[in-house]
């Protein structure tokens, strides 16, 4: 077989535009403390947390096919580890976050050994059961308030930074940095050899196996990485809330239902999906927050409409029509030289 002269291109025009767009948006967001009020910073940090959670869930469910409805297990684990490390061990609040990532990764390995025996629906239910077990365990820890919860002592909060304003800025920047780190991790993962395997698994697990991909190992790596990321985000969320209880930390509605909503309407199995989905969700929430049940009804209608009319999500619809991608993931081959390719078969 004579190898032809070729060139491989990764970036398309839309992905180059996407990178410029991201750079501009990033600079604007870093500067948010100078143009936004406290309410804006709080809202933005909340959006970052949800984009991060949804991106991780998207990697797990959209690419690796692990449809977990129990990721609140790791949000809650991260939150409780923050309180435990800060209150009981005396680790400075910000320093707990990398430790939490490592601990959550270690915890997720035996959990994976257990729930990876289950397939499909059974796996989904299994993840929920694990989350409930975590919640019940947390409610047994009386030094952290047991079932009724506890507040983070003032001293720990004051030690984060001098002055209330600076503390808010630091936490805001941390939330942004964590989101950027998680997005960068996901992009790097998808561009690596693992990404090739993950995308193949997303599209066709049988064919992936038959082409030499160790599907079990790839899934385990993704599960452990998402557990670590989810726990770090969880810790940051509760560093802002300053109060923890088993029911809020392990809330299936907040940390799984909304996250799935965001991913599915944005476009599951696509990197851009969670970002688009989070924007839609927060726009709806801010517009309809005062209307009570109408807000939830609208979310339901939007979810049903997207699932029926655009099962690939909003970004899937756009990308399918215009061939856009914001992140350069594709490998395009360009044949150099004018000779006609020899045709066989």
């Amino acid at each position: 077989m004579s190898a032809p002269a070729i060139r491989i291109e990764h970036a398309t025009r839309s992905s180059r535009a996407g990178l410029v767009l991201f750079a501009v948006v990033f600079v604007v967001l870093v500067a948010a403390p100078w143009w936004g009020g406290r309410q804006h910073l709080r809202l933005l940090a909340e959006i970052y947390a949800f984009v991060a959670l949804a991106s991780l869930w998207n990697l797990l469910a959209g690419y690796a096919g692990l449809v977990s409805v129990g990721q609140q297990a790791y949000v809650g684990l991260g939150a409780y580890l923050l309180f435990a490390l800060a209150m009981l061990v005396g680790v400075p609040a910000l320093w707990t976050i990398p430790i939490i990532g490592i601990v959550a990764a270690l915890v997720s390995i035996p959990v994976a050994a257990l729930i990876f025996r289950l397939r499909g629906h059974y796996f989904a239910i299994g993840t929920w059961v694990v989350a409930e077990v975590f919640r019940l365990l947390a409610s047994q820890v009386s030094v952290l308030g047991g079932g009724s919860g506890i507040s983070l002592p003032v001293g720990i909060v004051l030690a984060i930074a001098q002055g209330r304003q600076m503390r808010e800025f630091v936490i805001y920047w941390l939330a942004l940095a964590l989101l950027v780190a998680i997005l960068a991790l996901v992009v790097w993962l998808l561009r690596s050899r693992y990404g090739l395997a993950l995308t193949a698994i997303r599209d066709n697990e049988l064919a992936a196996r038959s082409n030499g991909i160790d599907v079990g190992r790839v899934k385990l790596v993704v599960y452990v990485l998402t557990a670590a990321g989810t726990a770090m985000v969880g810790a940051l969320i509760f560093l802002q809330k300053l109060r923890i209880s088993p029911d809020t930390a392990f809330s299936v509605t907040d940390w799984t239902a909304i996250v799935i909503f965001i991913t599915v309407i944005g476009g599951i199995g696509r990197l851009e999906g969670p970002i688009i989905g989070a924007i839609v969700f927060f726009v709806l929430r801010e517009l309809l927050a005062d209307y009570g049940t109408v807000y939830l009804l609208t979310l339901g209608v939007v979810a049903i409409a997207v699932m029926l009319k655009a099962p690939q999500g909003i970004w899937g619809l756009i990308a399918g029509r215009f061939g856009w991608q914001l992140f350069p993931l594709e490998r395009r081959v360009v044949y150099l030289g004018g000779e006609q390719p020899a045709k066989c078969a």
Binding site: M1, A3, P4, A197, N211, R331
Partner: peptide
């Protein structure tokens, strides 16, 4: 995917072979 995982080679090392194979298979 098939060349990199099925044959245990680096991603960049298989580009040329894959492009050639596509030509042969029309």
């Amino acid at each position: 995917v098939a060349a990199a995982f099925g044959d245990g080679r680096g991603e960049r090392d298989v580009y040329a072979d894959c492009a050639g194979l596509l030509q042969r298979c029309g």
